[in-house]
């Protein structure tokens, strides 16, 4: 049995493992039981009654959180010409120039998300394996 810290035990005691809380109560509890010196990320895990081994029961999607993630997201954009300018105007952090592509191959990952225009997917494909690991 690994040793648990005093603070950890204290936090655990605030939570009744057998109760199912209301959503707001649960979040209040999470906020009030936080005992560390940094701004913790709150995660949600949902167990679904699906079997993802069946292709038709795959659940995947995206959602824009109304209050954001509380984290600055660095965006890398694969685009050229006019689209490159559009991306920069919209707040892209990096444009995938040849130089940047080289850097990524060498293991640079200063961005969180990558976006591409369809005509640039060829360039993206070359980096597919490296990029997959990251986001």
């Amino acid at each position: 049995m690994p040793k648990r810290s005093k603070k950890q035990i204290e936090a655990q005691q605030k939570v009744d493992r057998t109760t199912q809380y209301g959503p707001l109560d649960a979040l209040e509890l999470a906020v009030s039981s936080s005992y560390v010196k940094f701004d913790e990320t709150v995660d949600v895990a949902v167990r679904l009654g699906v079997d993802p081994r069946h292709a038709d029961q795959m659940v995947r999607g995206t959602v824009v959180l109304p209050n954001g993630l509380g984290k600055e997201v660095k965006v890398l954009v694969f685009a050229k010409g006019e689209k490159e300018k559009e991306a920069l105007d919209a707040g892209a952090d990096f444009i995938a120039t040849d130089e940047v592509l080289e850097k990524i191959k060498d293991g640079w990952f200063g961005f969180d998300k990558a976006i591409a225009t369809p005509d640039m997917m060829g360039a993206v494909g070359k980096l597919g394996r490296v990029l997959d690991q990251e986001d």
Binding site: A11, Y35, V42
Partner: peptide, 16 residues
């Protein structure tokens, strides 16, 4: 939806 659990990075899991 079978179960929902909320937790902070180091905090305990809280069932919803």
């Amino acid at each position: 939806v079978k179960t929902i659990t909320i937790s902070s990075t180091m905090g305990p899991g809280i069932k919803v």
